[in-house]
Design a protein around this nucleic acid. Structure first.
Lengths: 190, 190
DNA sequence: TATTGTTATACTCTATAACTATA
DNA sequence: TATAGTTATAGAGTATAACAATA
């Protein structure tokens, strides 16, 4: 497929899109592609060995990390899903014997979600693989470059957080470039 | 939520997971979070102004970029989806009046997908906003750092491509650390 | 009144398998 | 035989709205 080591953007890009930045768009494209490959690599093990989706495994990992049963709404907050979605996710995990619902001892509105031993085994096997995959993926990058990368990513992330709270920007007009195909179409058809 | 500028991993991490790398996992965590924020920022405009999902807008953008009608299987290849998923995507877009199906003039197995004027208007308005959002997000990063970032991402991506073709690794045993909660549970309950 | 969780419903996206028609 | 596309079906994920039980 697109097996170039870096994704680059054509030179006339900023002429076509006033307000755009060629280098910024190259950052965005390469960042998205690398992160997608990262996520796919990390999700591979739980999917192929335990048939667990990303959300499903994340639910187990959250419970394992908490080291104690959690009420459903707490897991929902950490996963960033609605309570109705959480109910359905927990239903799937319960059917597969990976979590159990228990009544909360003092607040009878709540249910406490507890991992089964099988779920704990899955998490214990999956986390080392995921971390090993990550270590391998970053293996060719020096420690100094890792630190630089983390810092630059943090700079971008902070800006994105601010942007998310602002209203949508007003579009600037695009100056469409003439592509060979468009020129072909524009030419009188004989 | 997790509004720290950088995500960091505890110092005892490598003791718990032999074969893992603390700095690599920090790279992975920060990369995933920043990329997710990027994708969410870029998908915001087409979703909020035209109610278009990422795949739906991508389909329109591919057609716009090609500058000529494309057969369905070509779009499916570029989107990396199965032909059946493409059919359903195109059905949704057709219902919304954004694409039209036309018979291929010479190969009667094929259909040519063409953008409507409304779809072209949407793409023309969306692309400048997306590129402006990207330029704003990366605005605080110097040109030199952008280039370094792209290079480092390419290094990681190349490794991930190789890893994807290999069989799954064998998990190394985890050395569970004692968390406060676990210690509490382990202690005799009085 | 607010919180917790469930049910019902719907829509998107993706996937597989069986199928038609065309090359 | 291989290719292009559709239909049928299924499942995961997310969303909203109405609801019951409890605080």
């Amino acid at each position: 497929m697109s097996s170039e080591p870096t994704i680059r953007v054509p030179a006339d890009f900023e002429a076509e899109f006033p307000g755009a930045s060629r280098s910024a768009s190259e950052v965005a494209a390469n960042l998205s592609r690398t992160a997608a490959a990262f996520v796919s690599a990390v999700e591979r093990w739980p999917r192929e060995t335990a048939n667990l989706s990303a959300s499903a495994f994340q639910t187990l990992a959250i419970l394992e990390g908490a080291d104690e049963p959690l009420p459903a709404h707490v897991i929902a907050e950490r996963l960033i899903v609605r309570s109705a979605s959480m109910t359905s996710l927990l239903h799937t995990l319960e059917r597969r014997g990976l979590v159990e619902r228990h009544p909360h001892p003092s607040d009878r509105r709540k249910i406490l979600i507890q991992l089964t031993d099988e779920a704990r085994r899955i998490v214990d096997q999956t986390l080392p693989v995921q971390h090993a995959v990550i270590a391998a993926a970053v293996g060719d990058v020096s420690e100094a470059d890792r630190e630089r990368l983390i810092t630059t990513l943090a700079t971008i992330w902070t800006r994105l957080e601010n942007l998310a709270e602002r209203p949508l920007p007003i579009p600037k007009a695009r100056r469409k470039r003439r592509t060979p195909a468009a020129a072909r179409q524009a030419r009188p058809t004989k």
